[in-house]
Nucleic acid binder design. Structure first.
Lengths: 328, 328
DNA sequence: AACGGTACCGCAAACGGTTGCGGTAATTTC
DNA sequence: GAAATTACCGCAACCGTTTGCGGTACCGTT
């Protein structure tokens, strides 16, 4: 219609310097008018890239995932990429298949939170081979090849326990997830370190680990009933906090009168409890944004230092679930 | 390597009948070995489709969205499509831009939950023009052109109120969201209808609507303090339930002794409260799956009846938040 | 022996952009 | 005024698959 070649149109739309401003104007006007935009697949096919970032999640839980997704989306929205999402349902097999799909889509980067069943990262090698950047986040594994973004679990735990100790608590029940996961291990270590640094003996019976949070249904009530020395509770996640609070209420214990409680939390749920729960805020939002930004940087500047992990810092939010404990 | 043409390889991998089983075997074996799979963009470019379904959400909340995403992913995983996700942040402008991106990606279908600012659907027309199927879900608008999948809000409300009435309650405080949204309106209507059918006068002061759930902070406590006739609460969503329970606890009222409560809920949160909250379960999971399946069907069989809306049914889950009310 | 049928496979065009290179006209340089 | 430079644009190859069509080899039939 404009009596110019397709090459000129292509160049005009991509603002190539060889094309005169006059021609660019005419092309753009007509393109707008006819609502024309280049066929994405033809372009990506030709240019051999996809404009896609893959997000691989093991699950979607109500406490953490929403904010994680928000954070990632914020970073994505500020870029030229789009987000393609996969769920592994905590299955290693599925995760492996998803990696294959990522290659198929020629995604340019992968954000992955590992499944429970994943104990090594060999299935990610095809990505490396194809020069696809990959960043681990949240559920990660120690490794040499992939950078990871997590919260500083050790520090977070320590902060929580330190805070309780400062409030006079010495007999603190710690509730953790499956100790096979590094995330639990680090939080347990943080607990222990804080106790030791304050010269408080670490009682093994005060550290309980559960695989599923429903395990608390039969573990927690007996402990709270019989061990009257416990003055404070520390839970390493929102899920555990919710379950614990349920049993505390069921036993007619009052927070913080009978029991103080501090949790590591993403920051939404603690405001829904009564009293609101003091917590160490670990922002899934921030983590998602950080990880995604980092990934995008790795893609645009391949020289980016790719071997160290990033730690998302946390901070104490004081609400109403902790009382001063007077040593009897 | 196999001394056969690319056409044969292509046909072998797609199980074309012209290819002998022997050849198919050899091709597949080698493909597996070399981890080969056809370049997606070349294929989609050639076949002129994208294999993509777009999901457009206004927000990611902790109560509903996770299950919605799960449900959608279940349907997607069972198909040959992949999911590309966009967040509108409840902005009409952003939503419009996203539609443009969908066209760019040549998605084959769109699942959209509308933003708060969206009052008409004209911005979806480009999709229709490009023959792209679009299904509204959850946050929808009455219209002629697009099918919608929602829960049967009216019914759900009715079930809840019916249940409370059956338990002897007559003075029921209903807590609803912004009445401008059809979802709130329908639930209010359900409330009213149930009352009327049971010959109970509808008191306008017993229907409260809030724009943001933090509005309850100053609205709810005075009501609960002064109107001692109220024996039961009905909340139309998990968010409102959470806020309400917070204030109930803050006022030292006991559920269900002092106050019974029923909510419309996605089914996770009610188990975290103490006592666990009886609710009308509206499954975001089911809704997502239903909507996605329906969309996929519309795509594969364009003859599918495209004008009626689908209603996802709900069911009563009796837990511990409702007590028999003896009429004084 | 000639023919029709079937089973299997290759040739080459097409999908819609992008881009290196080469060409032309206009402008500047000496 | 000739040469060199610049500004602008078109030609054609190429990206990796898919697919219509045509071809060959082998079989059974008459």
């Amino acid at each position: 219609m404009l009596n110019i070649s397709t090459s000129t149109v292509s160049r005009a739309l991509s603002d190539h310097k060889d094309i005169s401003d006059a021609t660019k104007q005419r092309v753009r006007k007509l393109a707008d008018e006819f609502n024309y935009s280049a066929n994405v697949h033809a372009r990506l096919f030709r240019k051999q890239n996809s404009g896609l970032i893959a997000l691989v999640l093991p699950e979607v839980n109500m406490f953490f995932t929403p904010n994680l997704i928000k954070g990632i989306n914020k970073a994505i929205a500020a870029s030229n990429y789009s987000l393609i999402t996969f769920l592994s349902n905590d299955s290693y097999k599925k995760e492996k298949e998803i990696i294959k799909q990522c290659l198929n889509w020629a995604v340019e980067g992968v954000l992955i939170s590992l499944s429970k069943e994943t104990y090594d990262l060999s299935h990610l090698e095809p990505l490396t081979k194809s020069q696809i950047k990959c960043v681990l986040l949240d559920k990660v594994l120690d490794n040499e090849h992939y950078p990871s973004v997590t919260i500083d679990s050790n520090q977070a735990s320590k902060k929580a326990i330190d805070y309780l100790i400062k409030k006079g608590h010495r007999n603190i029940l710690g509730i953790f997830g499956n100790p096979n996961f590094s995330i639990s291990q680090e939080r347990i270590n943080g607990y222990k370190e804080a106790m030791k640094e304050n010269n408080i003996p670490v009682l093994t019976e005060n550290i309980i680990c559960v695989d599923k949070n429903t395990d608390l249904d039969y573990i927690l009530p007996p402990i709270l009933n019989h061990n009257k020395n416990i003055s404070a509770l520390f839970t390493m996640s929102d899920e555990l906090l919710a379950k614990s609070l349920y049993h505390i209420n069921a036993l007619d214990l009052a927070v913080p009168r009978d029991l103080s409680i501090v949790s590591i939390s993403d920051g939404d749920f603690p405001y829904l409890t009564h009293p609101q729960t003091s917590h160490i805020k670990d922002s899934g939002n921030k983590m998602g944004r950080t990880a995604c930004k980092f990934l995008l940087q790795c893609i645009s500047e391949p020289s980016t230092n790719f071997d160290s992990g990033l730690l998302v810092s946390t901070k104490l939010v004081e609400l109403g679930s902790v009382a001063e404990h007077k040593i009897p």
